[in-house]
Amino acid sequence: MKFIPRQPREGINVSDTHPLVEAGTLVAGLTVIFVAIALLLIFLVEIALYFIPVEKEVALFEDWLPEDLVTVSPADERLHQTQLLVDRLAFHWADAPYTFRVEIDDSSVANAMALPGGLIVVTEGLLDLVESENELAFVLGHELGHFRNRDHLRALGRGIVLSLFFATTMGKDVSNISVNVTDLALRGFSRQQESSADEFGLALVYTHYGHVDQAWRLFERWDETDGTVLNVVSYTSTHPDAGDRVDKLKDQALREGWPVEGSITGLKW
């Protein structure tokens, strides 16, 4: 037998795909799949929340608080007064299915949020800006309007799915799914949802005080100062332009014949 010397041939057993191309393809492909799954999950959660009955929602979220919420002391007078004001306003919403809970978030950025299970979060930043109870009443009434229209369950899917994702990748306990108030603060509702909540809020304010004086004074101040000197970026980024809102509220008061002047209730803190 004649032995024919031959060196191993290259490129037979080893693919000529560059490792970085292989890495890029895999990372890009898997990212697309992953994002698609996440979007589908978000969509499914949104659908589920859309159809959840209000009793079920209340039962599920009865004691729930956003994970990163930094609450003030339970003895804080502002907390008592705000809770009291919410209760008084909600009294005029005869068949309200919620027992509303108020929490004050230790954040200097003005914001107010309607969260699942009848939780209303207002920030210290907002409380620093309101100058009368009437101003605060309208902001709270507006949030109650979101509950009435069940807007507060919209856009929760992203927060829930994102926290699920971080819980799994960071190796945290998945059963303890948390939604962060910082995520929720960024969700915006549609113009239609906002005006509807405004209308409901103003009606509550009128029913409670018998007039709507100073209901929109807060927004007028924001509009005058352009919102820039105040810490209202968060609230204004998720709510319509203050000037537009004031015009609409004035129209509503005029249409309904609600007095725009009356006695103002001061803040009790």
């Binding site: 080893v14 795909t17 898997l30």
Partner: peptide, 23 residues
Amino acid sequence: FKRVIAGLRAIVGGRIKTYEPLL
């Protein structure tokens, strides 16, 4: 690097191209 890319490859299957030169 090879291990991570092979791990990603293992999710979808196919030739583990980063292992081929190794073997």
